[in-house]
């Protein structure tokens, strides 16, 4: 699997994400600076978490207007994989590759903890290493992860099986208590129509080794390694 990790000023989980790609595929990803206009020849473009441009103005809004973004759009149009995690998810929605928006957490507070996710679609390029309905542990760390989309968009997302991950409890139930940020339909991660773009708030890249407390996050990178 050949991958690239984009770096914008203020991004801060690029090393975590690069490490996950490296661990799973054995190949270190290309680190691509935001002022570039071309991507290297890669299968997966990953946009990491952090606070691009300080999250000033609106999360992801300024990064979405960086020179590299046109190349990301072309990569996605060609069917290349795009993975946006946390700030990366926010950026991908700002670009318009995914619908909806991420609002301030319902608690109005930043929250870092481990949550449970239910894999609602395990037949995607990003999730095939998981079993359908599997409940996995995954860290979150964000202040604005409250996913929202209008009723029509939601109906399409749900109808087309484009909700990849949902926040749930240990038993796999989606409850208010298990929803850490107020996301509508407990949505933690969604796909585009074509299934080659995934945006998610949680950080699977921080749970890929036993030392980190578990390896539940590996599945996502292993899934990509199968197809790319």
């Amino acid at each position: 699997m050949k991958s690239a990790v984009l770096v914008f000023p203020g991004i801060n989980r690029e090393r975590d994400l690069a490490r996950a790609f490296h661990e799973v595929s054995g190949v270190a990803p290309h680190m691509v600076w935001h002022t570039e206009t071309e991507l290297p020849d890669v299968d997966v473009v990953a946009i990491p978490g952090g606070f691009s441009y300080g999250d000033y103005l609106r999360c992801g809004a300024i990064a979405a207007r960086s020179p590299i973004i046109e190349a990301v759009r072309r990569h996605a149009d060609r069917g290349g994989y795009v993975l946006g995690i946390c700030n990366g998810f926010q950026i991908v929605t700002e670009i318009g590759l995914l619908p909806g928006a991420l609002m301030r957490n319902a608690s109005l507070k930043f929250v870092c903890k481990e949550v449970r996710l239910r894999v609602d679609n395990a037949s995607t390029a990003f999730t095939s290493a998981y079993a359908p309905g599997q409940v996995i542990r995954c860290p979150i760390a964000h202040g604005e992860g409250n996913y929202f989309a209008d009723a029509e968009t939601l109906a399409r997302l749900e109808g087309e099986g484009r909700v990849a991950f949902r926040y749930c409890d240990e038993a796999g139930e989606t409850t208010d208590a298990a929803n850490p940020n107020g996301s509508i339909h407990s949505i933690a991660g969604i796909l585009n129509e074509r299934g080659n773009v995934l945006g998610m708030m949680p950080h699977p890249e921080n749970l890929i080794e036993a030392l980190q407390g578990g390896i539940d996050g590996r599945g996502l990178f292993e899934s990509l390694a199968r197809v790319a």
Binding site: D16, P139, A141, E205
Partner: peptide, 16 residues
């Protein structure tokens, strides 16, 4: 308190 602090970034936190 500490759930408002990102204590996992960098992926090296072994004792949280």
């Amino acid at each position: 308190v500490w759930e408002q602090y990102d204590h996992l970034i960098q992926g090296n936190t072994v004792q949280r």
